[in-house]
Amino acid sequence: MPQPFTELTAVAAVLLRDNIDTDAIIPSREIRAVAKTGLADGLFANWRYLPGEGRTPDPGFALNDPEFRGARILIAGENFGCGSSREQAVWALAEYGFRALLTPSFSPIFQRNCVRNGVLPACLARHAIAQLAEWVSADPQRHRPSVSLVTQRVAAGARSWPFEIAADAREALLSGLGEIEQTLRFNDRIAAFQAADRLRRPWAYDLGPATPGSHRESE
Protein backbone atom coordinates (compact mmCIF):
# COMPACT_ATOMS: atom_id res chain seq x y z
CA MET A 1 0.00 0.00 0.00
CA PRO A 2 1.61 3.32 -1.04
CA GLN A 3 2.09 6.17 1.45
CA PRO A 4 -0.01 9.27 0.74
CA PHE A 5 1.87 12.18 -0.79
CA THR A 6 0.95 15.75 0.10
CA GLU A 7 4.04 17.91 0.53
CA LEU A 8 7.77 17.38 0.60
CA THR A 9 10.71 19.67 1.28
CA ALA A 10 14.01 17.90 0.73
CA VAL A 11 17.43 17.89 -0.90
CA ALA A 12 17.11 17.53 -4.66
CA ALA A 13 19.61 15.79 -6.92
CA VAL A 14 20.09 17.04 -10.46
CA LEU A 15 20.51 14.64 -13.39
CA LEU A 16 19.69 16.71 -16.44
CA ARG A 17 19.83 14.09 -19.17
CA ASP A 18 16.98 13.46 -21.59
CA ASN A 19 15.60 10.00 -22.36
CA ILE A 20 16.89 8.33 -19.19
CA ASP A 21 15.54 4.83 -19.79
CA THR A 22 14.58 2.15 -17.28
CA ASP A 23 17.61 0.03 -18.31
CA ALA A 24 19.75 2.95 -17.10
CA ILE A 25 17.70 3.38 -13.91
CA ILE A 26 17.93 -0.31 -13.05
CA PRO A 27 20.01 -2.48 -15.40
CA SER A 28 18.39 -5.85 -16.01
CA ARG A 29 21.23 -7.80 -14.38
CA GLU A 30 20.66 -5.81 -11.15
CA ILE A 31 17.22 -7.38 -10.82
CA ARG A 32 18.22 -10.45 -8.87
CA ALA A 33 15.19 -11.49 -6.87
CA VAL A 34 11.48 -11.85 -7.47
CA ALA A 35 10.78 -9.02 -5.04
CA LYS A 36 10.02 -5.32 -4.87
CA THR A 37 13.01 -4.67 -2.60
CA GLY A 38 16.75 -5.16 -2.69
CA LEU A 39 17.08 -2.85 -5.70
CA ALA A 40 18.52 0.41 -4.31
CA ASP A 41 22.13 -0.75 -4.71
CA GLY A 42 21.55 -1.37 -8.39
CA LEU A 43 19.99 2.04 -9.03
CA PHE A 44 21.81 3.68 -11.98
CA ALA A 45 24.49 0.97 -11.55
CA ASN A 46 26.05 1.49 -15.00
CA TRP A 47 26.61 5.18 -14.26
CA ARG A 48 27.05 5.09 -10.52
CA TYR A 49 29.92 2.61 -10.31
CA LEU A 50 33.22 2.43 -12.17
CA PRO A 51 33.59 -0.45 -14.63
CA GLY A 52 35.08 -3.67 -13.30
CA GLU A 53 34.56 -5.82 -10.26
CA GLY A 54 33.28 -4.41 -7.00
CA ARG A 55 31.21 -1.33 -6.48
CA THR A 56 33.59 1.59 -6.71
CA PRO A 57 31.53 4.77 -6.93
CA ASP A 58 32.23 6.90 -9.99
CA PRO A 59 32.93 10.33 -8.51
CA GLY A 60 31.69 11.96 -11.71
CA PHE A 61 28.13 10.72 -11.24
CA ALA A 62 25.61 13.08 -9.64
CA LEU A 63 24.29 10.73 -6.97
CA ASN A 64 27.85 10.15 -5.72
CA ASP A 65 28.33 13.87 -5.20
CA PRO A 66 28.27 14.58 -1.44
CA GLU A 67 26.37 17.77 -2.24
CA PHE A 68 23.35 15.66 -3.13
CA ARG A 69 23.53 13.46 -0.04
CA GLY A 70 20.12 12.56 1.34
CA ALA A 71 18.29 13.59 -1.83
CA ARG A 72 14.61 12.68 -1.90
CA ILE A 73 13.75 14.74 -4.96
CA LEU A 74 15.23 14.05 -8.42
CA ILE A 75 15.32 16.70 -11.14
CA ALA A 76 15.86 15.15 -14.56
CA GLY A 77 15.44 15.60 -18.32
CA GLU A 78 12.72 14.84 -20.79
CA ASN A 79 11.05 11.45 -21.45
CA PHE A 80 12.24 10.10 -18.11
CA GLY A 81 11.65 6.36 -17.58
CA CYS A 82 11.31 5.46 -21.25
CA GLY A 83 11.99 1.93 -22.44
CA SER A 84 11.17 -1.29 -20.63
CA SER A 85 8.02 -1.28 -18.47
CA ARG A 86 9.93 -2.84 -15.53
CA GLU A 87 8.43 -1.45 -12.34
CA GLN A 88 11.71 -2.32 -10.62
CA ALA A 89 12.87 1.11 -11.88
CA VAL A 90 10.38 2.82 -9.57
CA TRP A 91 10.96 0.37 -6.72
CA ALA A 92 14.71 1.09 -6.95
CA LEU A 93 14.22 4.88 -6.94
CA ALA A 94 11.80 4.66 -4.02
CA GLU A 95 14.03 2.34 -2.02
CA TYR A 96 16.97 4.70 -2.57
CA GLY A 97 14.82 7.43 -1.05
CA PHE A 98 13.24 9.40 -3.88
CA ARG A 99 9.64 10.44 -3.29
CA ALA A 100 9.29 13.07 -6.02
CA LEU A 101 10.59 13.21 -9.59
CA LEU A 102 10.54 16.54 -11.44
CA THR A 103 11.02 16.46 -15.22
CA PRO A 104 9.55 18.05 -18.37
CA SER A 105 7.94 14.69 -19.28
CA PHE A 106 7.76 11.02 -18.37
CA SER A 107 7.21 7.80 -20.24
CA PRO A 108 3.55 6.91 -19.64
CA ILE A 109 4.01 3.41 -18.18
CA PHE A 110 6.76 4.65 -15.86
CA GLN A 111 4.58 7.54 -14.73
CA ARG A 112 1.75 5.19 -13.79
CA ASN A 113 4.18 2.90 -12.00
CA CYS A 114 5.32 5.89 -9.90
CA VAL A 115 1.78 6.67 -8.82
CA ARG A 116 1.12 3.04 -7.88
CA ASN A 117 4.08 3.28 -5.49
CA GLY A 118 3.42 6.66 -3.93
CA VAL A 119 6.19 8.42 -5.88
CA LEU A 120 5.16 11.79 -7.35
CA PRO A 121 5.95 12.17 -11.08
CA ALA A 122 5.54 15.93 -11.67
CA CYS A 123 5.89 17.58 -15.09
CA LEU A 124 7.31 21.11 -15.13
CA ALA A 125 7.96 23.38 -18.07
CA ARG A 126 11.44 23.00 -19.55
CA HIS A 127 12.49 26.49 -18.47
CA ALA A 128 11.21 25.82 -14.94
CA ILE A 129 13.32 22.66 -14.74
CA ALA A 130 16.37 24.62 -15.93
CA GLN A 131 15.84 27.44 -13.40
CA LEU A 132 15.10 25.03 -10.58
CA ALA A 133 18.18 22.95 -11.39
CA GLU A 134 20.34 26.07 -11.41
CA TRP A 135 18.99 27.23 -8.04
CA VAL A 136 19.44 23.80 -6.46
CA SER A 137 22.94 23.28 -7.89
CA ALA A 138 24.21 26.51 -6.31
CA ASP A 139 23.98 24.90 -2.86
CA PRO A 140 22.04 21.63 -2.85
CA GLN A 141 22.13 20.97 0.90
CA ARG A 142 20.63 24.37 1.68
CA HIS A 143 18.59 25.06 -1.44
CA ARG A 144 15.88 22.52 -0.80
CA PRO A 145 12.83 22.82 -3.01
CA SER A 146 9.31 22.32 -1.65
CA VAL A 147 6.91 20.24 -3.65
CA SER A 148 3.21 20.55 -2.86
CA LEU A 149 0.70 18.23 -4.45
CA VAL A 150 -2.05 20.21 -2.76
CA THR A 151 -1.23 23.45 -4.60
CA GLN A 152 0.49 21.63 -7.51
CA ARG A 153 3.53 23.88 -7.28
CA VAL A 154 7.25 23.57 -6.68
CA ALA A 155 8.78 26.40 -4.64
CA ALA A 156 12.47 27.30 -4.67
CA GLY A 157 13.39 30.30 -2.55
CA ALA A 158 11.34 33.23 -3.73
CA ARG A 159 10.22 31.58 -6.94
CA SER A 160 7.69 28.88 -7.65
CA TRP A 161 6.35 27.04 -10.67
CA PRO A 162 3.19 25.02 -11.33
CA PHE A 163 3.44 21.40 -12.34
CA GLU A 164 1.14 19.05 -14.21
CA ILE A 165 -0.22 15.73 -13.10
CA ALA A 166 -3.29 13.81 -14.27
CA ALA A 167 -6.35 14.24 -12.05
CA ASP A 168 -6.69 10.55 -11.25
CA ALA A 169 -2.98 10.27 -10.44
CA ARG A 170 -3.23 13.27 -8.10
CA GLU A 171 -6.19 11.76 -6.26
CA ALA A 172 -4.47 8.41 -5.91
CA LEU A 173 -1.28 10.00 -4.54
CA LEU A 174 -3.11 12.25 -2.10
CA SER A 175 -5.21 9.42 -0.71
CA GLY A 176 -2.56 6.69 -0.81
CA LEU A 177 -5.40 4.21 -1.24
CA GLY A 178 -4.74 0.89 -2.90
CA GLU A 179 -6.46 0.85 -6.24
CA ILE A 180 -7.42 -2.82 -6.17
CA GLU A 181 -9.56 -2.31 -3.06
CA GLN A 182 -11.25 0.67 -4.68
CA THR A 183 -12.08 -1.25 -7.83
CA LEU A 184 -13.25 -4.36 -6.00
CA ARG A 185 -16.00 -2.21 -4.51
CA PHE A 186 -17.42 -2.08 -8.06
CA ASN A 187 -17.46 -5.86 -8.33
CA ASP A 188 -21.20 -6.16 -8.88
CA ARG A 189 -21.08 -3.58 -11.60
CA ILE A 190 -18.16 -5.34 -13.30
CA ALA A 191 -19.99 -8.69 -13.12
CA ALA A 192 -23.15 -7.18 -14.62
CA PHE A 193 -21.11 -5.56 -17.38
CA GLN A 194 -19.46 -8.89 -18.18
CA ALA A 195 -22.78 -10.74 -18.27
CA ALA A 196 -24.13 -8.32 -20.87
CA ASP A 197 -20.83 -8.30 -22.75
CA ARG A 198 -20.87 -12.10 -23.02
CA LEU A 199 -24.07 -11.85 -25.05
CA ARG A 200 -22.73 -9.05 -27.21
CA ARG A 201 -19.30 -10.60 -27.85
CA PRO A 202 -19.50 -14.39 -27.22
CA TRP A 203 -16.28 -14.88 -29.19
CA ALA A 204 -14.30 -12.86 -26.62
CA TYR A 205 -15.07 -15.61 -24.08
CA ASP A 206 -14.41 -18.43 -26.55
CA LEU A 207 -10.90 -19.72 -25.95
CA GLY A 208 -11.03 -22.12 -28.84
CA PRO A 209 -10.35 -25.83 -29.18
CA ALA A 210 -7.16 -25.48 -27.10
CA THR A 211 -9.35 -25.23 -24.01
CA PRO A 212 -12.47 -27.19 -24.99
CA GLY A 213 -15.67 -25.89 -23.50
CA SER A 214 -13.94 -22.88 -22.00
CA HIS A 215 -16.49 -20.56 -23.53
CA ARG A 216 -19.14 -22.43 -21.56
CA GLU A 217 -17.22 -23.21 -18.42
CA SER A 218 -16.64 -19.57 -17.70
CA GLU A 219 -20.35 -18.81 -17.93
Binding site: R116, A166, E179, T183
Partner: peptide
Protein backbone atom coordinates in the same frame (compact mmCIF):
# COMPACT_ATOMS: atom_id res chain seq x y z
CA UNK B 1 -0.93 -1.99 -24.21
CA UNK B 2 1.95 -2.36 -21.81
CA UNK B 3 1.60 -1.84 -18.08
CA UNK B 4 3.68 -2.13 -14.90
CA UNK B 5 3.58 -4.91 -12.35
CA UNK B 6 1.22 -3.08 -9.96
CA UNK B 7 -1.24 -2.47 -12.77
CA UNK B 8 -0.85 -6.16 -13.66
CA UNK B 9 -1.90 -7.04 -10.12
CA UNK B 10 -4.94 -4.81 -10.51
CA UNK B 11 -5.74 -6.41 -13.86
CA UNK B 12 -5.43 -9.92 -12.45
CA UNK B 13 -7.54 -9.19 -9.37
CA UNK B 14 -10.35 -7.31 -11.10
CA UNK B 15 -10.16 -8.13 -14.85
CA UNK B 16 -10.22 -4.35 -15.32
CA UNK B 17 -7.89 -1.39 -15.41
CA UNK B 18 -8.36 2.34 -14.89
CA UNK B 19 -6.58 4.28 -17.57
CA UNK B 20 -6.49 7.85 -18.81
Amino acid sequence: WGIGSSDAEHALATQTLRIP
